[in-house]
Nucleic acid binder design. Structure first.
Length: 977
RNA sequence: GCCCGGGUGGUGGAAUUGGUAGACACGCAGGACUUAAAAUCCUGUGAUCGCAAGGUUGUACGGGUUCAAGUCCCGUCCUGGGUACCA
């Protein structure tokens, strides 16, 4: 009756979606006598573009594992929710005036509908949304716990309630306190503490709180009156509008994640994560052991403190380098160097950290005119500033040893500074990347001479300590995490200000909900959007006006799934004790150092405070690769002055422009848009524009921007008229086409993402082939962990496989035709071989190979014309994790009333797999080196050949080696005598 | 720049982790069925020489270790992700 046709697929999938919902098969309780298994996906940000084909990749994998584990007898929690705060909704709100909550709700509805179409086994009763006040109430609550906490190092590192700190300050001051706190924390007595007024007390406590306020660097765009992410800054100007951006200090909330650095590092050894992710976290935390020491400034008061891991090389110091932002720069600079230093500082200030680091090959710096004294030998050392030294790391100052550091070496060469060898061996390799200053004995180093570098470090350290000029210090590259954003669409802080003192709102006033505002952009004076809220105050006091960052809500959400409705706690003790931690977490590797680190941090803090009982939140992690999309780019011309209209040039012109080979046509059309430009003059590229002092506005370059891929057609070029209609930003822009009138876009393969306008929607595939085909196809595409561009060319093969599987159960007329006959040994061998491989593959997250195994099995059974229940039933159960709809239907056709979800995963047996064979051991020099397997039905001459070969080997052991004996998988395949 | 991945036929990818490279699938070519098309089934398919048997070559590039290298080591190139306010 029924063929596996488009209509039939639709009927089957709709039917079972409804059935599963009414039967409530995915509902999960917080108790069971089965072992628990918690499978978590990284929840999506609900973007306006809807779910794209990259999202389901990980979700399908986790759904397969969930269903598999359930069939294997586990009590499985597999929830889904939405990371709903974020920039895109806010930007859309700024443009349209639409409240981000409205957009977000709409997007979430779309996502849920799309997700449901794919047949996931989520328990939707446990859905969480980070932007829902009933959720962010608890995000705010956790913030309050962290505000009310400090981190003591004694007796063991632990988060403690702040009241214990206050009690100790009252009693003894902070002389006995060993805590993680601000570097500039002074030592005070109990009397000092008591003499502080309320404000001074709070300022002092801020140096200890886990959540605290600090002065941090941000990208400030005066024209837009807002803070920009590094992402939003392109080539030194804002991505939107092309306005200049500068670095600026701003008071912001921060999280003292550095307190947990050591634990975050050690914890990595206890969890089953991909080694590269662990490695990235280790590098991010960046522990380095060394010391800080002071250099006295000559002819002036004061010292400069540097951090070094190589104190042994102290005699090789020939200059010192400060970060341009270092606070002493203006103080120590001599009059004659002032102009040079100031101009250098200005340039450096306006370059982002990433830019500065990515251009280390371009050496730059300025001499301050000041000198310091080497405390070991009294040598006079010039002090320079250079942007390869970062203000945020260590002390913002380094002692430069050009003979043992590549960057110092390059700097010394460039500015002709002296170089003193302090380690034996050639330094000619120093410019090479593999240069290793960790060998040889010390030379030219006075008392350190002849020591190994490791011994020298210890000797030098003791000297530093005995002279009282410095201390041993463990430094972490990781900085405290900034926890505030100058945006509207985020969690408001449960904080208000009374006489300038930050205070927490009363716990019963949670949640502090987002107020209504007349617009979602910053105020005219550059204050955050929340400053626009009228009548929004706490008992007459001003609320904190920044909001929490995107990672706030995602740093604890896995706990909320355990008990999502709870109004009294973020999750009940029983729920937390039952589910404990996540057994399997699947998500993209792009979160390696962001979300995954913050989540571990909050988990540890919550554990210390006694709210949860797991030190690590995610026991096992799998990184799914990205499904990539092909992005299209447009190219905006750029000069150093702001133009009235944006001008975009076609890819071909951009290519010629960057090579400085503009054609007559190019010059003519660009000149029409820029009448003042002298285009026959020197053309320069993005690379050297900042360097060139002759840059006077006549020189132009360009920046590239993503554009919606659906606006581009390979033959027609870009439909920029539609683009202008769709995006008001582009309404007045000019598009310069090639001579044939087409605007050609450049393209690149990159991560599929709304912000890159390159998303492909899965709905079309579900409509044409069904959800099961989409699921199996996404798994068949390749290994889960690997990134791959999206293409649908192979999808027919997967569809055909499902149809062939369906046909195994049906006769030519489409009637169900399954017999209860005994299967043959041959059929059982196919079945058990497949079951064994599939199980191995699923346990190893190798879903692409399991799909292949299913296909092979299906082909073999087809050619055997096997329609026996004893074979087909177990296979149906095994396949149900991958393709739930079709298997559920077949399960019913086989006469089962209950859902296939409640059946048991089939066991395979070795009995049907073993070959009849015997083993023949081959020993060489008395050791068994290989075993030969002879199938009983092996041709006689083959056996003879192999036995002969083995005899050769026997002889070899007696001292007559053959030229060559090649053993493959325990078999001798070739012998050369 | 720095940190972490990846590079195998026309295409997506297999390869028991050092043991006969290219499983499975797409595509393509040829054939069967059909009045015809679709669907389905069968055969072939890395390159190269050959009618064939078979030979040679072949896992980005250049070296190395090994009886044996897609796999391990060194170097180079290309490419993806992250780089602290995209999430």
């Amino acid at each position: 009756m029924a063929d596996y046709s488009k209509d039939e697929i639709k009927r089957i999938e709709d039917k079972w979606r409804k059935e599963w919902k009414t039967r409530g098969v995915y509902k999960v309780e917080n108790h069971s006598d089965k072992p628990k298994y918690y499978v978590l996906d990284m929840f999506p940000y609900p973007s306006g573009a809807g779910l794209h084909v990259g999202h389901p990749l990980g979700y399908i994998a986790s759904d397969i594992v969930s269903r598999y584990k359930r069939l294997k007898g586990f009590h499985v929690l597999h929830p889904m929710g939405f990371d709903a705060f974020g920039l895109p909704a806010e930007q859309y709100a700024i443009q349209t005036g639409q409240h981000p909550a409205v957009t977000t709700e709409k997007n979430i509805a779309t996502y849920i509908e799309q997700l449901n179409k794919i047949g996931f086994s989520f328990d939707w009763d446990r859905k969480v949304e980070t932007s829902d006040p009933s959720y962010y109430k608890w995000t705010q609550w956790i913030f309050m716990q962290l505000f009310n906490s400090w981190y003591t190092k004694k007796p063991v590192g632990k988060t403690e309630p702040i009241i214990t700190l206050i009690a100790e300050l009252e009693k003894n001051g902070n002389k006995n306190i060993d805590a993680v706190c601000d570097d500039d924390t002074p030592t005070i007595t109990a009397a000092d503490w008591k003499s502080f007024n309320e404000k001074a007390k709070e300022e002092f406590l801020q140096k200890y709180r886990i959540a605290y306020r600090s002065d941090t660097m941000v990208n400030w765009c005066p024209a837009l009156g807002t803070v920009l992410s590094n992402d939003e800054v392109k080539d030194g100007v804002s991505e939107r509008g092309g306005y200049p951006v500068e670095r600026k200090k701003m008071w912001q909330w921060s999280m003292r994640i550095t307190a947990y650095a050591e634990r975050l590092l050690k914890g990595l050894d206890t969890i089953d994560w991909p080694e590269p992710v662990k490695e990235m976290q280790r590098n991010w935390i960046g522990k380095s052991v060394g010391c800080e020491l002071d250099f006295k400034v000559e002819k002036q008061e004061g010292t400069i403190r540097v951090f070094t891991t190589r104190i042994d090389t102290i005699y090789g110091v020939t200059f010192m380098v400060l970060a341009p932002e270092h606070e002493l720069v203006s103080k120590i600079t001599t009059a004659e160097q002032k102009a040079e230093v100031e101009s250098y500082v200005t340039i450096a200030k306006n370059r982002s950290e990433r830019e500065r680091m990515s251009e280390v090959k371009r050496i730059s710096g300025a001499f301050t005119g000041a000198y310091v004294t080497n405390p070991f030998n009294g040598a006079k050392i010039p002090v320079w500033i250079a942007d390869y030294v970062l203000a945020g790391y260590g002390t913002g100052a380094v002692m430069a040893v050009p003979s043992s550091d590549t960057r110092d070496y390059a700097f010394a060469k460039h500015f002709s500074l002296p170089i003193i060898d302090v380690l034996e061996g050639p330094t000619s390799d120093i410019t090479k990347d593999n240069f290793d200053p960790k060998s040889g004995k010390m030379i030219n180093s006075d008392s350190l001479n002849g020591l190994d570098w490791k011994e020298a470090i210890e000797v030098a350290l003791q000297k530093v300590e005995s002279l009282g000029i410095g201390i041993r210090k463990v430094n972490f590259r990781m900085r405290d995490a900034i926890f505030g954003r100058q945006r509207y669409w985020g969690e408001p802080f449960p904080v208000y200000y009374e006489n300038g003192i930050p205070k927490l709102v009363d716990i019963k006033d949670l949640p502090v909900t987002l107020p209504e505002v007349d617009a979602y952009k910053p105020t005219e004076s550059g204050e955050p959007p929340l400053a626009r809220a009228k009548g929004w105050d706490y008992k007459g006091n001003q609320f904190e006006q920044t909001t929490m960052p995107g990672w706030a809500g995602s740093s604890w959400y896995w706990f909320r799934y355990m008990d999502p409705e709870n109004e009294k706690e973020f999750a009940s003790k029983e729920a937390v004790n039952y589910w404990k931690d996540v057994d399997l977490y699947i998500g993209g590797s792009e979160h390696a150092t962001g979300h995954l680190l913050y989540s571990r941090f909050w988990c540890k803090a919550l554990k210390d405070l006694g709210y949860v009982n797991s030190e690590e939140p995610f026991k096992k992690l799998i990184n799914q690769g990205h499904i990539q999309g092909v992005s299209k780019f447009i190219y905006r011309l750029r000069t150093n002055s702001k133009l009235k209209k944006d001008v975009f040039i076609s890819f071909n012109i951009a290519k010629r422009l960057s090579k400085g080979e503009l054609s007559l046509y190019d010059k003519k059309v660009i000149k029409e848009q820029y009448p003042d430009l002298e285009l026959d003059g020197k053309l320069i590229t993005n690379q050297n524009v900042l360097d060139d002092s002759s840059f006077d506005g006549t020189l132009i370059t360009y920046s590239q921007f993503n554009v919606d891929i659906d606006l581009y057609d390979e033959t027609q070029g870009l439909n920029f008229e539609l683009l202008k209609k769709r995006k008001p930003d582009f309404a007045n822009s000019i598009f310069i086409t090639d001579e044939d009138g087409k605007y050609i876009c450049g393209s690149e393969v990159e991560k599929m993402s709304k912000s890159k306008y390159n998303v492909v929607n899965p709905d079309e595939i579900v409509d044409n082939y069904g959800a099961d085909t989409l699921r199996v196809y996404e798994m068949f595409l390749g290994p889960l962990e690997m990134s791959k561009p999206w293409n649908t060319s192979g999808i027919d093969g997967v569809f055909k496989f499902l149809r062939r599987f369906w046909n195994l159960f049906h006769d030519q007329q489409g009637n169900v035709a399954v017999t209860d006959a005994e299967p043959s040994r041959e059929e059982l061998k196919v079945l058990h071989k497949t079951l064994k491989k599939i199980e191995y593959d699923i346990e190893h997250f190798s879903f692409n190979t399991s799909v292949s195994e299913f296909m092979i099995c299906c082909n073999e059974l087809s050619s055997m014309k096997c329609n026996k229940r004893a074979v087909l039933e177990p296979l149906t159960i095994a396949l149900s994790s991958f393709a739930p709809h079709i298997t559920e239907e077949l399960w019913q056709l086989l006469g089962h009333k209950d859902s296939i979800l409640n059946s048991t995963y089939p066991k395979w047996s070795e009995e049907y797999l073993t070959e009849s064979s015997f083993e023949y051991p081959i020993s060489i020099n008395g050791k068994v080196r290989a075993k030969m397997n002879f199938a009983l039905d092996m041709p006689k001459e083959d056996v003879e050949k192999l036995v002969l070969a083995s005899e050769v080997v026997q002889k070899w052991s007696e001292g007559k080696p053959p030229k060559k004996v090649i053993v493959v998988q325990g078999r001798i395949v070739n012998v050369v005598l």
